[in-house]
Amino acid sequence: MPFISCGIYIRDHVSKSLFEFFVLFTWAIWKEICKVRHGPNPKQHVIKVQWVHSFLEEYRRAKRSCLPNPDRMQLSLESKWKKPPLRQLRLDVDADFNEQLGLYSVGAVIRDHLGNICVAASRGIRNPGTVVAAELVVVHFGLMLVLQGDFSNVWVFSDSLNVVQAINDFFESLAHDGLIILNISELLRSGRFKKFSSIRRSANSVAHSLANFALFHSSPMSWVEGSYPSWLMDVATLDLSL
């Protein structure tokens, strides 16, 4: 059974606390495997189990003792697209779906401080089960686009507040989409990214248009400078004129 399928099966058949332990312990094993490959001696399994228990308990105690921090939500009330700061980039991502056909798609665009498109991409995806899961897939899709293009100083935006909250507050949603959230969280800590924030749909028109385009084109598409289709340039230009 593939690991992702195994994770989904376990998620659906055990309690939230047990699944949290499973995800964190799996991550700990992966970290130790990396150590084996690169030299240092790995920890014994019993030590990893104790560490996972200690980590989860410490987190839960801290969570109970702290008031909610509004800064973690990073909800932008802006209804218009805004340029990133000088010499920085902006990644916008969005997912779309056709309920009747059962089709899901994702779109991502990276733009500079002048509003110019650096790279754009879209593709269809297999049915992830929920709209939130699709929005998580597109965040990962966009982050990988940044890494593949070797970009840095990137502000990340999604118009799904639920996804932004899930990623910024990792363990609250661990029992639902923990595996992909864990992967996204690791990427966001790579040093290439600024804040991960939520925006309104009206400020995310280019990424939404890319995702919508992918619903009707089965092949993955990507565009770099000089190859952008006219419809994409029209939407991006409209952002700058509002």
Score class of each variant (00 low, 15 high):
180 I>L: 11
31 K>G: 06
195 K>E: 13
14 V>S: 11
153 N>S: 12
120 A>H: 07
57 E>P: 00
85 P>S: 05
208 H>R: 12
207 A>H: 07
238 L>Y: 07
211 A>W: 01
192 R>S: 08
12 D>P: 03
218 S>W: 02
200 R>T: 03
183 N>F: 02
100 Q>H: 11
158 S>H: 07
6 C>W: 10
57 E>I: 04
107 G>C: 06
108 A>Y: 03
101 L>S: 12
107 G>F: 02
134 A>E: 01
206 V>P: 05
83 K>V: 10
109 V>M: 05
210 L>S: 06
64 R>V: 10
196 F>V: 08
204 N>I: 06
9 Y>G: 03
48 K>Y: 04
112 D>P: 10
186 E>M: 09
119 V>A: 03
103 L>E: 07
219 S>A: 13
197 S>K: 13
158 S>C: 09
200 R>V: 00
160 S>F: 03
88 Q>T: 15
128 P>D: 03
218 S>H: 07
173 S>D: 14
99 E>P: 00
41 N>Y: 02
169 D>M: 13
214 A>C: 08
102 G>F: 03
75 L>Y: 07
83 K>Q: 12
169 D>W: 02
25 F>Y: 14
127 N>V: 04
14 V>Q: 08
55 F>L: 12
25 F>A: 13
17 S>M: 08
85 P>F: 01
60 R>K: 15
160 S>G: 09
122 S>P: 00
107 G>I: 02
51 W>Q: 14
95 A>W: 05
23 V>A: 12
85 P>A: 03
38 H>Q: 08
214 A>L: 06
8 I>G: 00
58 E>S: 13
136 L>F: 11
54 S>K: 15
70 P>M: 01
101 L>W: 01
118 C>K: 13
205 S>A: 15
56 L>R: 13
223 W>H: 06
214 A>Y: 03
102 G>R: 08
205 S>Y: 04
94 D>N: 14
205 S>C: 13
113 H>V: 01
131 V>N: 11
220 P>I: 02
103 L>I: 15
183 N>E: 15
214 A>G: 10
238 L>R: 14
197 S>H: 02
233 M>A: 00
133 A>R: 08
234 D>F: 06
75 L>T: 02
43 K>F: 05
104 Y>I: 05
176 H>D: 10
158 S>Q: 09
20 E>M: 07
57 E>S: 12
115 G>C: 05
184 I>G: 06
152 S>M: 06
17 S>D: 14
204 N>Q: 11
95 A>H: 09
126 R>F: 10
237 T>Q: 11
30 W>M: 09
152 S>Y: 02
161 L>C: 00
74 Q>P: 00
92 D>T: 14
141 F>A: 09
230 S>F: 04
10 I>R: 10
167 I>V: 15
127 N>K: 14
214 A>R: 09
164 V>Q: 07
94 D>Y: 02
175 A>K: 07
16 K>G: 10
5 S>I: 05
110 I>K: 11
195 K>W: 04
186 E>T: 11
58 E>H: 08
146 V>E: 07
100 Q>N: 13
156 V>T: 09
47 I>S: 09
180 I>W: 02
205 S>Q: 15
111 R>D: 06
184 I>E: 04
88 Q>K: 14
26 T>S: 15
32 E>M: 03
85 P>H: 03
144 M>P: 00
46 V>P: 00
43 K>C: 11
193 F>K: 06
195 K>Y: 07
85 P>W: 00
233 M>I: 10
121 A>F: 02
218 S>G: 05
13 H>D: 01
72 R>S: 14
160 S>C: 14
79 S>Y: 08
193 F>V: 06
